[in-house]
Amino acid sequence: MARLEVRKTPKLFSGGEFVRSESGRTYQVDGWNVPRSSRKDLRDAVRSARAALPGWSSRTAYNRGQVLYRVAEMLEGRRTEFARLIGRGGTREVAAAIDTWVWYAGLADKLVQLGGTVNPVAGPYFDFSIPEPTGVVGVVAPERPSLLGLVRSLAAVLCAGNTAVVLVSEGDPLPGLCLGEVLATGDLPPGVVALLSGFRRELLPHLGAHMDVNAIDASGCDDQELAALEAAAAASIKRVVRLDGDPSPYRALAFTELKTVWHPVGR
């Protein structure tokens, strides 16, 4: 007799835990009951991300790089499962996602040198500028590629030392949600990343208007969603960025703030 498969309950990943939506709501995707996150889930995720920020952002860049590399290792070990979840083209997509984690793992301790400067001011001062993490970043992952698109955004955001609240693909949420299992075993401290599934039209306005979110990677937004996000973001002067393309330091630097420090030189 054929073995009866043990099915996985799709869950959100928030505050380092795998949870259902506090609302108890789900929506169906290919027969799976996927959590339909509420505004409260979003707020809880932001609170955890804020709490995790001081620890994550003050890790040494070397250590952050190692954690990102560990994430790549964990994903490598589960290639088959993710490829199956993604379906068509899944094998190639997972490989590209792993490569992206490795690429940003190696960038973490170069970013300050690429984005920072010592500034030759006209006076007896030592003056330097360094990029620092912007803070809590909302990530709106593209619908497809549901895993690679998410990883392209998330790895850059984390590499720069931010914490993230991610809205995973609405139509293909499982690869994004299951990434939580990779992150949890990849030494990423609890709260650094939240992965939320649900209805984008329901969650985007709250993400845009949340006063404790510092920036949004809107790479998964269409023009209309972007316009609405940008309008809501003005309430707290959020940075809203939509990027595409290959991994690059410019992408990670888009989620940094430049700090300039002056000190006199004297005897």
């Binding site: 003056d127 300039t260 002056w262």
Partner: peptide, 21 residues
């Protein structure tokens, strides 16, 4: 965005200026 240590209100075209939050 700008931290002045043992000085204040210094500006220079070579020195990036601007805010957080």
């Amino acid at each position: 965005g700008v931290v002045w240590a043992n000085t204040y209100n210094r500006f220079d075209p070579a020195s990036p200026f601007g805010g957080y939050k």
